[in-house]
């Protein structure tokens, strides 16, 4: 019995996050463990669980449909319009212009690769694009009352291939490209998180794995497969919705 906080700690560190921590402590609470000990364990283990890997199946995190975030809803609509150009290019090589030529090769040759290799290809191809910090300046909007507010700008795939972007644009471009390669929307989410190491907000693409764990496609070419991400996940989105990970 004395070893239960240690067991829960191992669960948090080696398996994943808050979800498992809560389950572990619930199971423990059903035994005769004093509440003071449970509280102490929560205080110690919760910060550890906050840096665990991303999970797709955490209950009660669905917040709203994708269009509830207007900038994201608008990006989805623009991408849907641009898909005609991608389809035309895939059908007829002569209709490919500029970056679409490279995209055609990625889609044609990527289709023959194993899923792991597809992720690696997409990650490296997108990460080669130009990094541009000034995208947010373009989305400066004057809110009611005349107060200027900075908003995230979410790029479409073609927008990003031609103009580059910053980290949320890299994540969304990977999302749209993997959709073209046949990945299901339900298996991918663009996750906005707080990176404790640099004390800044960051966005990565999470890919669901068969065991419900996830891989994170980073902007430095790495694919983070470990259970410990070092991120505090805030919210996530894809074309089917927005998930809140803080409430």
């Amino acid at each position: 019995m004395a070893s239960w906080p240690f067991s829960c700690g191992i669960v948090v560190l080696s398996i994943d996050g808050k979800f498992q921590l809560i389950q572990c402590l619930q199971a423990t609470a059903e035994r005769d463990v004093p509440k003071s000990k449970l509280t102490t364990a929560l205080l110690i283990l919760l910060p550890l669980s906050a840096v665990a890997g991303y999970r797709f199946d955490t209950p009660e995190t669905y917040l709203a449909e994708a269009s509830a975030l207007p900038a994201w809803g608008d990006t989805l609509e623009r991408h849907a319009d641009e898909r005609a150009a991608i389809d035309d290019c895939m059908l007829t090589e002569e209709k490919c212009e500029g970056r679409l030529n490279g995209l055609r090769i990625i889609l044609q040759k990527g289709a023959n690769l194993e899923p792991d290799q597809q992720l690696k290809l997409v990650n490296r191809y997108i990460n080669k694009r130009r990094y541009r910090r000034d995208r947010k300046q373009m989305s400066l909007s004057v809110a009611e009352g005349g107060q200027a507010k900075l908003r995230n700008h979410w790029s479409t795939l073609l927008d990003f291939l031609y103009r580059g972007g910053d980290c949320e644009d890299y994540a969304t471009a990977k999302y749209f490209l993997l959709r073209e390669l046949g990945y299901q929307a339900d298996d991918m989410r663009v996750v906005v998180s707080y990176d404790r190491s640099v004390r800044q907000h960051h966005a990565v693409l999470a890919i669901r794995q068969a065991d419900d764990s996830s891989w994170l496609l980073e902007i430095d070419n790495t694919i983070r497969k470990s259970r410990q991400s070092g991120y505090r996940f805030i919210y996530a989105l894809n074309e089917n919705g927005i998930w809140d990970h803080e409430n």
């Binding site: 490296r124 080669k128 907000h201 960051h202 430095d220 070419n221 919210y235």
Partner: peptide, 29 residues
Amino acid sequence: IESIVVTAQKAPVVSTDEPDEDIDAILGE
């Protein structure tokens, strides 16, 4: 959520992943 602005910068890309000939060939093309 709308007010959270993503600010992390891209780190210089130094690939630490294992080399893959198929991928290198496609990216080279």
